[in-house]
Design a protein around this nucleic acid. Structure first.
Length: 187
DNA sequence: GTCGGGATCGCCT
DNA sequence: GGCGATCCCGACA
């Protein structure tokens, strides 16, 4: 279950990776939990930072799969992504905290630890310098779940283009999503 | 509980 | 020069 994430997600696009990451365990320097909400951003996706091609800011989105893409949002918050195929990435939007809760609580002056992309990077102590790091060592780890998770699906949050794509995913049956999911179509 | 405004900065146009 | 893949807090119901 350990080792580089890249070896286990070879060739996966952002949508497939976003689904696979639900239920995975994310650990950053001894703090983290279960991933319960993700969003996919594609290569030819008007809502994606990679839509207009590589720039210094989004360079890690075009780097190796299984590495982090960390960027600053609204000049204030940091957001954490996992790179899939070149130009594709998955935004981690919420965790169910399981490990290092004391450290996360100390970094956040709020009981809301990890339900939101900006909140979880603060709780985990993510820094801008973590951009491009591999999820491969003891400090940055993602362990995929043994079984496929029961998924919720909905449109992405906070974007102005491609709002119709159902590329937001959540773990069913838990609390702590950053926002509610719409009623699910029966399967 | 819900709503709305402000903070703050790097990148693209 | 404008605008975000956001969050927090205070006002009101």
């Amino acid at each position: 279950m350990t080792g580089p994430l890249a070896d286990r997600i070879l060739g996966l696009g952002a949508v497939d990776l976003a689904r696979r990451l639900i239920g995975a365990t994310l650990l950053v320097r001894g703090a983290g939990g279960t991933i319960i909400e993700t969003e996919a951003y594609g290569r030819d996706d008007p809502a994606s930072h990679s839509f207009r091609g590589p720039t210094p800011r989004n360079a890690s989105m075009f780097g190796p799969a299984g590495h982090a893409y960390v960027y600053r949002s609204y000049g204030i918050h940091l957001c954490l992504n996992v790179v899939a195929r070149p130009g594709e990435a998955v935004l981690i939007r919420a965790l169910a905290p399981t490990t290092g809760i004391a450290a996360m609580t100390a970094r956040r002056n709020s009981p809301l630890l990890c339900n939101g992309p900006g909140r979880l990077t603060q709780a985990l102590g993510i820094r801008a310098e973590d951009d491009g790091r591999a999820f491969a060592g003891s400090d940055f780890t993602i362990a995929l779940p043994p079984d496929p998770a029961d998924l919720l699906v909905g449109p992405r949050i906070g974007i102005s283009r491609a709002q119709d794509l159902p590329w937001r995913f959540g773990l069913a049956g838990v609390r702590g999503h950053s926002r509610p999911f719409p009623p699910q179509p029966r399967s």
